[in-house]
Design a protein around this nucleic acid. Structure first.
Lengths: 340, 340
DNA sequence: ATGAAAGCGCTAACAG
DNA sequence: CTGTTAGCGCTTTCAT
């Protein structure tokens, strides 16, 4: 039988250093009001090092009622757009010495949504919501909770606490690029009806058309942000009497479905029709054809969300937009329109 | 000034119910040795409901030295294979009333790897490692830590605590399907050299060839598990003197690169060359052409990992393999070989 | 410049 | 069947 070496506590450090545990605690936490002799401080620090002391997080959390952890609710880990938001948020939180606990919105623990567990059990100091389905009862629980929260990439029902991307500008950049290539008839495979990100992209598309001369009327088909949705919407759009020469797809995942619908219809990309999508991800550069995109600042969105959660007061109105950098990445899927 | 309603504590519940807090605690935790009058139990339960009482998690954690949380180290949130492992792990943990804290292996907090923070701060009751880079010093910290840990989809350096997929069988299923279609010359775009998942897939490929009659020799090119790697390896392979009629790609992400390399070379899929990959994800059904795959039980892998972590003793040797369900999903990218 | 003391909210013996 | 007790390890206020 080997005895498991019990982890050192504050008291043991204090004993070794020959001081009271209060001193050790204050040294550890960098208490600015603390005045100690250099020698004392050194003894404390060497005792900490010698015992390999690490503060007990649970005890500290209990005492301070803080967890140094933020929660993040996401729709689904398999969404590549969300993945980049998580990365940005986690890295930013780490800069503040904090962790992020990510839960998917479908998760249920003991019959209740998993994120409510986070909320009520004092496990987090703040909550970010990047999911669609926090509404109704769950939103009520949020509103009445004591911890700060913020919607990410999505407006909250009351439009008071959210941070979103500048989807409007992203859409304009994409469509104006197509116009610059010479396209005069441009269709839009939109996001789901009634989702605010989709609305902003749609307005960006429409305004880009309106502000250019000689454009054919807008053709919009809502497609959802899935490959299936993109396929179906594009198939529908391709049956329009007036076939556009270019397509702006609201989301890179639906764009994959779009591309297949176009190729399935016997059309070539970009010879017959150009395609550009919003958001980038690793695969876009390796699809056939490689996909032109407008890359949106998703990591920055996640990071900004953490910063705002960190600094904003519980009842502040926070309505931020992240606009930089928005980058056009032309690849094979866009070209000047065909002569007809 | 509104006074924030302080959350109810165990003592308040006990007072309201007219019993001692110990009783409340034991009712709450379902202590099997507890004998109480039904009436008492009812009073306790109604007091809990009335005060909307939720146990303070930090206090409980401090007292019990358990956090009801497992850690999971991943290479990267953007990896679709990893995403499904996370989902499976999180759902299984929820069934046991536990949460999962996911950290990417590159994360650093205060100059140290983020997962070490989890480990030393009593934040987790166990750690799953699905990343590549937990080795050397970090692995030492793991070995000497008191909490149980388990490698997922990857063998640990000592080959004593891991759960992996049956990559060998997945590979055989894929290759034997190609053989069944009539292919006699099959190439392999392999995973990274020296990674155990890649080795098992390679052996499955080789054995499938060996066990079939009239097969042309194996052609293997290591490609990494990235789209770039798949593109480069496939481009190399296509310059072989003996061009295979089918390709088994070790990973779905690299398969995207593979497809593009083949199309870029002016070959058609599946008319000139068939392609099948290991692992499925949502996009595979929407690539052009849609991609045939062998779907591996990634959610089950995550869930099994949690179950093993949960039940195995700290020093048990755990070397599990998850084999069910492995499902062949034929799509457009595979067909009988061309007549030559 | 440092120590003493109180207590955060909970669980687990043990006593009755 | 139920109450009492003794902390878990830490931070913070107040003395000295």
């Amino acid at each position: 039988m080997t005895t498991t070496p019990r982890r050192a506590t504050l008291v043991q450090v204090a004993q070794l250093a020959g001081v009271d545990k209060a001193i050790v605690s204050r040294v550890l936490n960098g208490d600015p009001t603390l005045r100690v002799k250099d020698d004392t401080r050194r003894r404390v620090e060497s005792a900490i090092a010698q015992l390999d002391y690490v503060p007990n997080y649970a005890a500290r959390q209990m005492r301070t009622a803080r967890s140094d952890t933020y929660g993040l609710v996401i729709p689904d880990f398999s969404n590549p757009v969300i993945a980049r938001i998580i990365s940005g948020a986690q890295d930013e939180a780490a800069l503040h010495g904090r962790l992020i606990t990510v839960v998917s919105e479908g998760l249920r623990i003991g019959g209740k949504p998993g994120f409510l567990r986070l909320l009520t059990q004092n496990r987090i100091d703040g909550l970010l919501i990047a999911g669609d389905s926090v509404s109704g009862e769950a939103y009520g629980a949020l509103r009445s909770s004591e911890i700060p929260w913020l919607f990410v990439n999505r407006q909250d029902p009351d439009h008071t606490r959210y941070v979103v991307l500048d989807d409007y500008r992203g859409a304009r950049v994409a469509v104006e690029y197509l116009i610059g290539l010479g396209h005069r008839s441009i269709g839009h495979i939109a996001g789901p009806d009634g989702i605010d990100t989709a609305d902003r992209r749609r307005r960006g598309y429409e305004d880009a058309l309106t502000n250019a001369p000689d454009m054919k009327p807008a053709i919009e088909v809502p497609g959802g942000y899935s490959a299936e949705g993109g396929y179906a919407a594009t198939a529908t759009l391709l049956r329009s009497p007036e076939l556009p020469t270019a397509l702006f797809v609201a989301n890179i995942v639906s764009a994959v479905g779009s591309i297949r619908a176009i190729l399935d219809a016997g059309l070539r990309i970009p010879e017959d029709i150009s395609v550009i999508a919003l958001h980038d991800h690793a695969l876009a550069a390796h699809l056939a054809p490689t996909l032109s995109v407008v890359q949106m600042p998703l990591e920055e969105l996640g990071a900004t969300a953490v910063r705002l959660l960190h600094s904003a007061q519980r009842d502040d109105v926070v309505t931020e937009q992240v606009s930089e950098p928005i980058v056009l990445i032309p690849r094979q899927s866009t070209a000047p329109p065909p002569h007809r």
